[in-house]
Simulated scan of single mutants.
Amino acid sequence: MKIDEIVTVLESFAPTALQESFDNCGLLVGNRHREATGVLLCVDVTESIVDEAIDLGCNMIVAHHPLIFKGIKKLNGQTYIERCIEKVIKNDLAIYAAHTNFDIVSQGVSWEMAHRLGLQDIRVLAPKTDTLCKVVTFVPPRYLAQIQEAVSEAGAGHIGDYDCCSYSSDGTGCFRALEGTSPFVGKKFEIHSEQESRVEWISPSYSVDRVVSAIKKVHPYEESAID
């Protein structure tokens, strides 16, 4: 398994887009394309933690607090942060920080603490705004189920404990294929009308690119209309 695969799993659970503005989550040091030989978990990266990772043969450290919060202008070993970075680079290690994105996400750090304390009426105290958007496409009804499955797997259509959530309505689409096209239905240079379903989903803003790519991959049309 490559380090990048581990990063993908971590960020599918808690996307870095959810982190606070002051934070610095994600892969801080290291090559994501290297094979992972082992992962060491910790709260803070220290010199002893780096030494432990080396001794255990773990070339990836996943920490809660980022080792690097602000820009570093020198690497001369004057601080423990600089010494950690130097040792990590020399030994081909990687450091990943999972901080406030893991704090805020459902079933993350704060959620788990609240449940273990037996708290009731649990909710986010300072919800993030502008994290959801609507994705719309138009597809022949017989391809609707295929589109639904692809979009759900890409991360859209999830509301609470439900997935595959969408709304669709039927209508008529109209288009004309021009030079250089290979239309799925209709003929080139002729205006064509087709029965279509307008289908829409709620999607996290950080998943939109993945959702759009999923739609284009399975949509039967050469040019899929996506709003």
Rank of each mutant, 00 (worst) to 15 (best):
D4P: 01
E5H: 05
V9L: 06
L10R: 00
L10M: 01
E11V: 05
E11Y: 06
S12P: 03
L18Y: 04
E20I: 07
F22T: 13
N24L: 10
R32L: 00
R34Y: 07
G38S: 03
L41P: 12
V43M: 15
V45S: 10
I49N: 11
I49W: 06
V50M: 07
D51F: 12
D55G: 03
L56K: 14
G57W: 02
G57D: 03
G57F: 02
C58P: 09
C58F: 07
N59I: 08
A63L: 14
H65N: 15
I68H: 10
K70D: 15
I72E: 01
K74D: 08
L75M: 11
L75A: 10
N76S: 12
N76Q: 14
Q78L: 14
Y80G: 04
I81F: 10
I81S: 11
R83D: 13
C84H: 08
K87G: 09
V88R: 11
D92W: 06
L93C: 13
A94G: 02
A94V: 05
I95P: 05
Y96H: 07
N101I: 14
D103L: 11
S106M: 10
S110E: 08
E112H: 05
A114D: 12
A114N: 10
L117D: 05
G118C: 13
G118F: 13
Q120E: 07
Q120P: 02
I122V: 04
I122W: 00
R123F: 07
R123G: 04
V124E: 08
V124W: 01
V124I: 11
L125N: 07
L125G: 09
P127L: 06
T129Y: 04
T129H: 05
D130E: 10
D130Y: 01
T131E: 14
T137A: 01
F138S: 06
V139Q: 03
P140Q: 07
P141Q: 14
R142E: 14
R142I: 14
I147G: 01
S152Y: 05
S152I: 01
E153Q: 08
E153D: 09
A154C: 05
G155W: 05
G157M: 12
I159M: 10
Y162N: 10
C174V: 09
C174M: 12
F175P: 12
F175I: 09
R176M: 15
E179F: 00
T181R: 03
S182Q: 12
K188R: 11
I191R: 07
I191S: 09
H192Y: 14
S193A: 15
W201T: 06
S203M: 04
Y206M: 13
Y206W: 15
D209K: 14
D209F: 06
D209A: 15
V211L: 03
V212R: 08
S213K: 11
S213L: 03
A214C: 04
I215H: 04
P220S: 04
Y221G: 11
Y221A: 15
E222C: 13
A225S: 06
A225H: 03
A225R: 08
I226P: 03
